[in-house]
Design a protein around this nucleic acid. Structure first.
Length: 130
DNA sequence: AGCCTGACTTTGT
DNA sequence: GACAAAGCCAGGC
């Protein structure tokens, strides 16, 4: 990742504020995603990194697999892959829903891709850990 | 208990 | 620059 703008993660980062036992990995993911400000987007890697499992961004996406059943609404539409591509749109009720929601938040989407994604990028590690 | 899968990311050829 | 492979870890079967 050379998109330094996107990754403000320093090597000397502190320990990860993990949730106490009893909390599922999923809960952490949902919690972070819910904290994403409206009009902003984040990536699986950023969330994973925040959770300390940056090496397994898959888990983040995987966790979202159950995001449809959890009670609070999870703005999964604000979560895209590191390319700003709406990779998970197909997992929504409708593939277009994700883009609809993004555009609704003034986030321009072009061909399944977030425009100015890096500008709208919201890194939990940078925003929540400081 | 063990194998498979997965909405990703990075690195190597 | 494009393609291929590996790594990650937790949930599901």
């Amino acid at each position: 990742m050379k998109k330094d703008a996107a990754r403000a993660t320093q090597p000397g980062r502190n320990e990860v504020p993990r949730q106490p036992k009893g909390y599922s990995f999923f809960q952490d993911v949902y919690d972070v995603v819910r904290q994403v400000p409206k009009g902003r987007v984040t990536t699986y890697g950023a969330i994973a990194n925040y959770l300390g499992t940056k090496l397994s961004a898959r888990m983040v996406g995987w966790a979202m697999n159950g995001a449809h059943n959890i009670k609070p609404k999870v703005p999964a539409h604000r979560v895209v892959n590191r390319n700003g591509l709406l990779s998970g749109k197909m997992h929504f009720a409708t593939p277009t829903q994700m883009q609809e929601l993004l555009e609704k938040e003034k986030i321009a989407v072009s061909e399944e891709k977030v425009v100015a994604f890096e500008s709208l990028f919201w890194d939990p590690v940078t925003q929540l850990t400081m």
